[in-house]
């Protein structure tokens, strides 16, 4: 049957489609991919067409009266700051959790522990918001003061420390908790799939557990971890309700993450302003949404570039 094929051709990828079943299936798969592109094009077209009035309007008409750039810039700063804090905190933690669940935890309870972490993904963002406001922010007030006292010379902790704890730092930590299950679930999946032969070979050569993980598991799971981190970053950048509830935002761009005057984030600003916005205000908000879109695009390009510099892992060989 298939032995007639030219031996130089790699078997899996470039096989020509012959059977009707194959044709239909491949067509459906391809169609789904194209459909996704169409949806995205639809969203982009919608964003652009709604944002154009804000780009063409004179700067006095934009809310704030200083033009679109001045309106959006602090929001960009806030969005990036919160997401970066979240990613810096969540990624190492998530990798640790994934390793713990896959290779350290007692076998019998490992699966259960996996569920427990997934539970974090089950909590709606409104609840994160109210928890962050009512519980976490208050608990973190002494920590803010300590940061201000001891690390105040670093611009990030310049202070004055917030008395309510509703700061960019708290938001970053809440976002970190929110994206933790996303990153750790994917990391867990790829770590668990690391080839048993490689692992056993490493152990057989006398490697300690950590050396085995470093040599056989981490290289294998790297692209998965990055993919997970990007998914998490996407969520952190676009998170709306939790940030809107917790953050005491609305100030200009600043690196200071512990004062009560933080810049808002793009998504939370849209949520806070949209219901009461009219006319050009709506266009301005949608223009800021477009900016968020572009930021995600840029971040993903960067991440893709990082991942693609390494050889693609597909299959176990």
């Amino acid at each position: 049957m298939t032995v007639t094929k030219a031996p130089t051709e790699p078997p899996a990828q470039q096989r020509t489609i012959r059977r009707p079943g194959d044709r239909i299936f491949a067509g459906a798969a391809r169609g789904s991919g194209i459909f996704i592109l169409l949806v995205l094009a639809g969203v982009a077209a919608f964003l652009i067409s709604e944002a154009i009035p804000a780009f063409t309007a004179s700067s006095e008409e934009i809310p704030g009266g200083e033009g679109l750039g001045d309106y959006v810039w602090p929001l960009i700063a806030g969005t990036l700051l919160g997401a970066v804090i979240a990613l810096l905190v969540a990624t190492p933690l998530a990798v640790g959790i994934a390793l713990y669940v896959t290779y350290y935890a007692p076998r019998r309870i490992a699966t259960a522990l996996g569920y427990v972490i997934d539970l974090l993904a089950a909590i709606p963002s409104v609840v994160y918001g109210f928890w962050g406001l009512a519980v976490l922010a208050k608990q973190l007030v002494p920590f803010h003061e300590w940061l201000d006292d001891t690390l105040g010379f670093i611009p990030f902790f310049a202070g004055p420390a917030s008395t309510t704890g509703r700061t960019m730092l708290t938001v970053g930590l809440v976002l970190a908790v929110m994206i933790l299950p996303i990153i750790s679930a994917i990391a867990r999946e790829v770590f668990g799939q690391a080839p048993a032969l490689h692992r056993e070979a490493a152990l057989a050569l006398g490697a300690t557990r950590w050396e085995m993980i470093r040599m056989a598991v981490l290289p294998y799971g790297k692209s998965g971890v990055i993919a997970g981190a990007m998914l998490g970053l996407g969520r952190a950048l676009g998170e709306t309700m939790a940030v809107a509830i917790i953050l005491s935002g609305g100030a200009g761009a600043t690196l200071n993450v512990i004062s009560n005057s933080s810049p808002s984030t793009i998504a939370s600003n849209i949520a806070l302003r949209f219901p009461e916005a009219t006319g050009l205000g709506v266009n301005t908000l949608i223009a800021s949404g477009l900016v968020l879109f572009v930021i995600t695009l840029a971040v993903n390009m960067l991440a893709r570039w990082v991942v693609n510099r390494r050889a693609d892992f597909s299959g176990a060989n």
Partner: peptide, 25 residues
């Protein structure tokens, strides 16, 4: 304005957030 016109300061979301923050400090 419906938007708080001054920059900076403690900001709370919705009436419930306002009551929560004022009550906690």
């Amino acid at each position: 304005d419906g938007e708080w016109p001054l920059p900076g300061g403690e900001a709370a979301n919705q009436t419930s957030g306002m009551v929560e923050v004022v009550g906690s400090v």
